[in-house]
Design a binder for these strands. Structure first.
Lengths: 128, 128
DNA sequence: CACGATTTGACAATGGTTCTCACCGTCGAT
DNA sequence: ATCGACGGTGAGAACCATTGTCAAATCGTG
């Protein structure tokens, strides 16, 4: 039997931020926002909470060009992201064609247990 | 007029390693291999050489799950990778459909300066 | 060869992330 | 309601890939 995670102020605060945010944000950004709101949470705790949430697939995680990990609360199910490099605004997109294509490629080359990563980056209309 | 890069022992050594290697390798791994071969090259120099090569699109770079950057000598032109999780064997693949799809998605959402990352992971026929 | 600009490399610095560990808070049991 | 075991917290240190520094070595042209 697995222990249920405890319901702490800190974890609730992190989840609340993720619910408010539109796009992807780094752990450090979330930490800063919490501080601004006066709901200070230790940086370690922010990292830990995000890891737990990501492991539970309650948030999506990806790396930007700088190698930073960004987190975002997303809808369930397999999807990809169109992410603004400047402001992090994110559009969830589906690509059934891509899924089929990647499965076919893998099959043709004798690969099994196939997964893939696909993210699209750009600058959104609101950013310079 | 841009200066041509100099032809130094160190840079030749790094390129030679990349030619020998089949799959992706990190800067640190390449540095270690150089040391083993007795062709010691400073770590900074390995990083710089790889950056230069990556900027010139002579090698491809991608990040593994741990955030390390991996490098590999690849054929010219835009392509993606089908990588074996177990042995690292890599197959270069093209996906013109995917390119068009991602451009279309980005355009429909008003994003510009679009780039994308796409890698396929699986277990190859030689691996259990 | 000589010279100047580039490159190198030992080392320090950076920065995101993880670890440590003593203290705290939660929550099931009493 | 309160207890107590144990997971959670947080300040700071540690970690580690990568980048910056700068004096000394090297390349290649004149």
């Amino acid at each position: 039997m697995v222990e249920a995670p405890r319901n702490t102020r800190q974890r609730r605060a992190v989840v609340a931020i993720l619910e408010d945010l539109d796009g992807f944000a780094s752990a450090q950004e979330i930490h800063d926002i919490l501080k601004q709101r006066g709901e200070s949470v230790g940086l370690s705790t922010v990292y830990r909470s995000l890891q737990v949430l990501a492991d539970a697939a309650e948030v999506d995680a990806l790396r930007n060009d700088d190698g930073e990990v960004l987190y975002r609360q997303c809808s369930a199910g397999h999807h990809h992201h169109l992410v603004c490099r400047a402001c992090g605004r994110t559009v969830e997109v589906e690509g059934p064609t891509v899924e089929r294509w990647s499965d076919k490629i893998a099959d043709e080359n004798g690969f099994r247990d196939v997964s893939h990563t696909l993210e699209i980056f750009g600058t959104c209309a609101n950013c310079p």
